[in-house]
């Protein structure tokens, strides 16, 4: 817990800057809570309720005994049922494989004392700055030639493009570990591979979990590559399915169903966030502080 200095008596003057700041902070916080309420409430409303009584609690669908009508509509019309399965599998596997490939690389780059490792780390970090748009055209052309313009191709692309950030994040964690344990393991006769798996990986657990969470959030929300690579609706991810659903539902003025669709994409992340907020925020600050 951060230590807060107590102000000296009489030194706390009224400051207009601080006053404005406090007001703005509370306004924005209240606004965030309000829009979150609005999103969840609107997901249970009819279009008329959404537009004429935005702050009221939903009632029409409840009165008719079908409170989840909007969710059912979105689920059936947008094919979210299949999309949930695809997304969970794709994001879960891609995240695990990314970390499994990045962790040994980050370990080798930080702890082997090999000359030029620092330069290589920077080369990989530069990859974080490459916009997806710069690589997407050649990737699409080549992968569709070998018939990988589908969810399997997207999986490989997700893993490959997540590597720079993950390696960069994990090098920070491995660099901060003490040398002694590694040396002790060596003296006890553990092989280098064994040292990595049974000593260093458990020590870097915080970093690995952070890498898993941040990649999972990023890939769950990724849309551009999913639009490019997924043509078959049966393979759509949630955000990809929502993208298609948006056009159709707006056209039919199905605003309730549309907001329910948005909620279906957002709520799993909200739950994850409520459970893991502390881990996400501390992991992020550790990673960026390096």
């Amino acid at each position: 817990m951060a230590y807060k200095p107590k102000p000296a008596p009489g030194s706390r003057r009224f400051s207009p800057l601080k006053f404005i700041g406090t007001v703005v902070v509370w306004l924005v916080t209240a606004f965030n809570l309000l829009v979150l309420y609005w999103l969840i409430a609107a997901a249970f409303k009819t279009p008329i309720e959404i537009f004429t009584k935005p702050f009221a609690l939903p009632y029409t669908w409840f009165q008719r005994g079908v409170p989840f009508r909007n969710f059912e509509y979105a689920w059936n019309q947008a094919g979210f049922g299949e999309a949930v399965v695809s997304t969970v599998l794709l994001v879960g596997l891609a995240t695990v494989v990314t970390v499994a490939i990045s962790a040994p690389a980050a370990y080798a780059l930080t702890r082997f004392g090999v000359r030029g490792a620092g330069g290589l780390t920077n080369v990989i970090a530069v990859g974080m700055g490459v916009p997806f748009q710069t690589v997407v055209i050649p990737l699409f052309v080549v992968l569709s030639k070998v018939h990988l313009d589908n969810i399997y191709g997207l999986f490989i692309v997700y893993v490959a493009l997540s590597i720079p950030f993950t390696v960069f994040l994990l090098t920070g964690f491995f660099r901060s570990l003490p040398d002694e344990l590694e040396e002790a393991a060596a003296i006890d006769g553990a092989s280098a591979t064994r040292t990595f798996f049974s000593v260093m990986l458990p020590l870097a657990r915080g970093g690995l979990i952070t890498a898993l969470i941040l990649n999972a959030i990023g890939l769950w929300n990724e849309t551009l590559l999913a639009i490019v690579f997924l043509k078959d609706q049966a393979e759509f991810t949630l955000s990809r399915a929502l993208f298609t659903f948006y056009g159709a539902a707006s056209y039919q003025s199905e605003y309730g169903g549309l907001i329910a669709g948005v909620a279906l994409v957002v709520l799993p992340m909200l739950l994850l966030y409520v459970v893991l907020a502390r881990q996400i925020i501390t992991g992020l600050t550790l990673g960026s502080g390096k």
């Binding site: 490939i101 990045s102 040994p104 690389a105 370990y107 080798a108 780059l109 702890r111 082997f112 004392g113 090999v114 290589l120 990989i124 990859g127 490459v130 690589v135 990737l139 490989i156 692309v157 893993v159 490959a160 493009l161 590597i163 720079p164 390696v167 280098a192 591979t193 990595f196």
Partner: peptide, 20 residues
């Protein structure tokens, strides 16, 4: 450990070069 440098690094580097 040095002998493990390449096996540990190559999968990540290969994907990096091929896809970025």
């Amino acid at each position: 450990k040095r002998r493990l440098f390449l096996p540990f690094l190559v999968p990540a580097m290969a994907l990096y070069v091929a896809f970025l």
